[in-house]
Write a protein that binds this DNA or RNA. Structure first.
Length: 261
DNA sequence: AAACCGGGGAA
DNA sequence: TTCCCAGGTTT
């Protein structure tokens, strides 16, 4: 849930979720549609499907117990390098190299002397982090969470509080006079009128409706909620419904659509 | 390497 | 408005 979503927004959903499905087997036995519905407005609803798929895989491959080693974790749906490393370290105390957006920023500043890391994780960054993480598993887990929290709470993307940073005296960025970001302007993702927004509106409409929703009603929803009208709306709704079906987030039922049973 | 995938809250 | 968030998958 925390992939690209702030923890503060995740927490309430996470609590309700674990109350409803305490174990992987519980989640694996649930329908995809109910899982997407419970995901609510966390965004990236494909994560909900992958989380359920991961629960199925945990039941099938690991007797219902979440594996502790990074390689097995990495093989689960929706689990990439970051999540595998984080679970191995924080849930199981294994030594791993956790490189999230916070760690990247701390290392970019403290070590490389840059205001912000590059847009995408590079191999050089991963190698750098690997050389810094302590060898001892317990200390490694502590290092990982410490650097992550430092980035989240002190060494923030905007408005870092260098005054209360324990690395102040050793920070290459501060030593260089805290220069501004020298990279190209970060392009914000377009949003209004995009397929992303339309897909979101469609899934939201289907979350709120237990019964299948006819296509004309979905088009009216997109028009009223997003202000998209006319032939472009029809075309875009068609395209988005097709992609949602392709993703397994939506199920066609005769001339209507619903979350997958 | 680049594109695609949501949504909300703070600045 | 813009920015940014405990990233992953596909091409």
């Amino acid at each position: 849930m925390s992939q690209q979503t702030p923890v503060a927004r995740v927490e309430p959903v996470w609590r309700t979720w674990l109350e409803r499905w305490p174990t992987p087997a519980d989640l694996a036995a649930e329908s995809p549609g109910e899982v997407v519905r419970a995901w609510g407005r966390l965004g990236y609803p494909r994560r909900a499907l992958r989380l359920r798929d991961a629960a199925v895989a945990v039941v099938e491959r690991h007797a219902g117990e979440v594996p502790a080693d990074e390689e097995s974790l990495r093989a689960l749906p929706g689990v990439g390098a970051y999540t595998a490393a984080a679970v191995a370290a924080f849930a199981f105390g294994r030594r791993s190299v956790v490189v999230d957006t916070n760690v990247r920023r701390v290392l970019a500043r403290a070590v490389e002397g840059r205001a912000l890391p590059s847009p995408a994780l590079t191999a050089a960054e991963s190698r750098l982090a690997a050389t810094l993480v302590p060898e001892d598993p317990e200390r490694a887990a502590l290092w990982n969470v410490a650097v992550m929290e430092l980035g989240a709470l002190v060494c923030r993307a905007r408005g870092p509080e260098c005054d209360r940073c324990p690395l102040l005296d050793r920070c290459a960025w501060v030593a260089a006079g805290s220069p501004p970001d020298d990279g190209p302007a970060r392009r914000g993702q377009a949003w209004h009128g995009t397929d992303r927004q339309v897909r979101g509106a469609l899934v939201q409409a289907l979350r709120e409706q237990a019964d299948p929703v006819p296509r004309p009603e979905l088009e009216r929803t997109v028009t009223s909620r997003l202000g998209i009208v006319g032939a472009p709306a029809v075309e875009q709704v068609d395209r988005c419904l097709a992609s949602l079906v392709e993703d397994g987030l939506v199920e066609p039922v005769e001339d209507a659509f619903r979350l997958p049973a």
